[in-house]
Amino acid sequence: MRVLLVAALAAAVAGCASTGEERDPRDPWEPLNRGIYTFNDKLDQYLARPIATGYQKAVPGEIRLRVRNFFGNIADPFIGVNNFLQGKFEDGVSDWARFAFNTTIGLFGIHDIATDMGYEKHNEDFGQTFGRWGAGSGPYLVLPVLGSSTLRDGIGWGFDFYTDPLNETEPFAVHWGLVTLRLVQTRADLLDASRILEEAALDKYVFQRDAYLQRRRSLIYDGSPPREKDPEEDKGDKDDTDKKPR
C-alpha cells in the first residue's frame, strides 16, 4: 500500500513538471490517474465484465441475492465499528443487531431478516470515518484494479482491507474462492450502473471521477451534506464550486 502511494506520488510529481495545461484542482495527478483508468477499463472489458455478465446469466437471481446477503452480513460488524467511531451509536448498535439476527435466524446471513425487522443496512467504511473526523479528501486517486478513490479513501481502504473478515478464512483455496466470489458478485451488481455511465458520459473518466467525489461527500454526511451554496446564485452565471476541497 505504502509503496503504491509513493510510486503514485513520484509519478504525479513527474507528470506535473512536464505539462503546463490547466488542470482540475481536485485532480492534480490526472495524467497518471488516466493511465491507470485506461488499464482498469481494459481489465474490466476483457476480464471482469465478461465474468460478471456470465455469472448474472448462469446464476439465478435468488441465489445471487443470498450471496450478496452473505457478504453484506460479514461486513456489518465493521460497519458498526465505523458508526461507533463516528459517534453514531444508535446506528452502530443497529448494525450489530443486524449481524446477530442475520447470522443466527438468517442462517449465516443468507437471509436478511434484520431489514424486515426494521434494522436498515448502512454504508460505512474507514474513508468515511476519516472524512467525518474532518479529513479532507485529498487529491483524487485511481487505484489499480480497485478504481476511483482519493488519498483519504485510499488510506481508509487500507484499514478496510486489514479488518476484512475474509482475511481469517482458511485454507488458502477457500479464502481465495470467497474473495473471488465477492468480487464477481460486486461487479455483477454494478453492471447496470456501468452501462448507464457508458451511455451518459461524454468523457467517462471525468464523469466517473465527479460522480465518485459527489457520492463520497454524500455518504460522509449520510445523504444530507451541508448545502454549499444558494442554488439561485448558481443558476447560469457563476462557476460551480460544488466540491469543497478547491
Binding site: L202, D203, V206, F207, Q214, R215, R217, L219
Partner: peptide, 29 residues
Amino acid sequence: GGVSLVANYRTEFNNVVRQSGIDGLIKDL
C-alpha cells in the same frame, strides 16, 4: 445516491467549451 446529475455534467461541459467553444459542445452532444 447523492450524485447530482446536473452538477456531474458541469466539469465535462466546461472542459469541452474551453477547448472548442459552445458549438464544439453542441457538436459533441
